[in-house]
Amino acid sequence: MRSWGAAAILSLCLAGPAAASPASVAGRWLTEGGQAIVEIAPCGAAICGTIAKVLKVDPKAPKTDVNNPDPRLRQRSTGNLRILTGFVPDGSRWKGEVYDPRSGRTYKSFLKAQPDGTLDLTGCVWKLCQTQSWAKAG
């Protein structure tokens, strides 16, 4: 029979249960309303998402990032624009930032893969949050 020392028992108690990683969110996703396909993939040590294709073009919408708070970025195209940045595991979800090119604002955000195969994107300003549900794109 093996005897456990006090130090071994204490280290087991302090370690606690192993942290679970959130489900993968990598892939191509159709945004709510079917406006665009966003491709989510690793970028460095984090996860990022880029507009891969605009499906519903608004002829009145600007073709460049005119609302960006950084004047140097206002001439970049809104096609192929990185809108999800810095997502890292946060319990059962991913935490990072989402950029809205329509407003030029960046919001604290969360991504979570759902059991039904959809992806929930939640953007927050202070404690006010709004969630969109994205479908897997073929």
Rank of each mutant, 00 (worst) to 15 (best):
W126N: 06
S77V: 01
Q130A: 13
D90P: 00
R105A: 14
V88R: 14
F110Y: 15
L84H: 01
F110P: 00
D90S: 12
L81G: 10
G91R: 04
D90I: 00
C129S: 12
L111C: 10
P101D: 14
R93S: 14
T85I: 02
N80K: 15
Q75R: 10
L119V: 04
R102G: 13
I83D: 03
T118K: 07
Q132G: 08
T78M: 12
L73Q: 10
L81C: 08
P89M: 07
S77W: 04
L84M: 11
S92C: 02
K127E: 08
G117S: 06
Q114Y: 06
R76K: 13
G86S: 12
W134I: 00
G96C: 04
I83C: 03
P101Q: 09
E97R: 09
F87L: 00
G104M: 02
C129D: 13
S103C: 03
Q132D: 10
F87R: 00
P71H: 06
P71V: 07
G79N: 13
Y107T: 03
L111D: 10
P89A: 11
R93L: 07
K112H: 09
T78D: 13
F87E: 01
T78R: 15
Y99L: 01
G117I: 01
P115S: 13
L81H: 11
L84P: 02
D100G: 11
D120S: 14
G79C: 03
A113E: 12
P101Y: 14
D116L: 02
L111N: 10
F110G: 00
P71T: 03
Q132F: 03
K112W: 07
S77Y: 08
S133N: 12
S92K: 11
P89T: 08
Q75I: 01
T131L: 03
D100W: 08
D70Y: 10
K112Y: 05
L81M: 13
T106P: 02
T78V: 15
R76W: 05
K108W: 05
R82M: 14
L128R: 11
L81P: 05
F110K: 00
W94T: 02
S109H: 06
S133G: 11
F87T: 00
L119C: 07
S133L: 02
R74F: 08
G91M: 04
T118A: 07
G104Q: 04
V88A: 14
P115D: 15
C129V: 09
P89L: 08
R76D: 12
D116Q: 05
V98S: 11
R93T: 11
S109Y: 04
G91Y: 09
Q75W: 04
Y99D: 06
L121V: 15
V98C: 06
V98G: 09
V98Y: 05
I83A: 08
Q132N: 06
L121Q: 02
Y107K: 00
K95M: 09
D70L: 05
F87N: 00
G79Y: 02
T118S: 15
R72E: 15
K127A: 11
S103M: 01
K95G: 10
S77T: 09
R72P: 03
L121P: 02
A113F: 06
T131H: 06
L119H: 04
G91S: 08
R102A: 15
L128F: 15
V88Q: 12
